[in-house]
């Protein structure tokens, strides 16, 4: 898979499932016989990765939701890391 760009449209990788877990009070990523607990920002990014929205759109949405600016670098870095781990995939 190539490095993500602002145009990439990431979705949760095959075999993984993202869900909110009240008992853990966080988003978790489930996969065969395992679980990753996501921190707040990772959860907020991943739940927007629906395969329809581009990274650019996700950045805009996050900046609005959290009244923040300049998140582009952080989001791209997270998406790249998650792609390496197969949590996210894109064309």
């Amino acid at each position: 898979m190539t490095a993500p760009s602002l145009e990439s449209r990431p979705h949760v990788g095959a075999g993984f499932r993202l869900q909110w877990e009240p008992a853990q009070d966080c988003h978790v990523l489930l996969y065969p016989e395992g679980m990753v607990k996501l921190n707040g920002s990772a959860g907020e990014i991943m739940k927007r990765c629906d395969g329809a929205r581009s990274v650019a759109a996700i950045v805009v949405d996050l900046e609005q939701a959290f009244a923040a600016q300049g998140l582009e670098g952080d989001v791209l870095a997270f998406v790249a890391m998650a792609g390496d781990k197969r949590w996210l995939a894109w064309e």
Partner: peptide, 8 residues
């Protein structure tokens, strides 16, 4: 209900 997420 207890919080288990993986079911084997």
């Amino acid at each position: 209900e207890l919080g288990a997420v993986q079911c084997g």
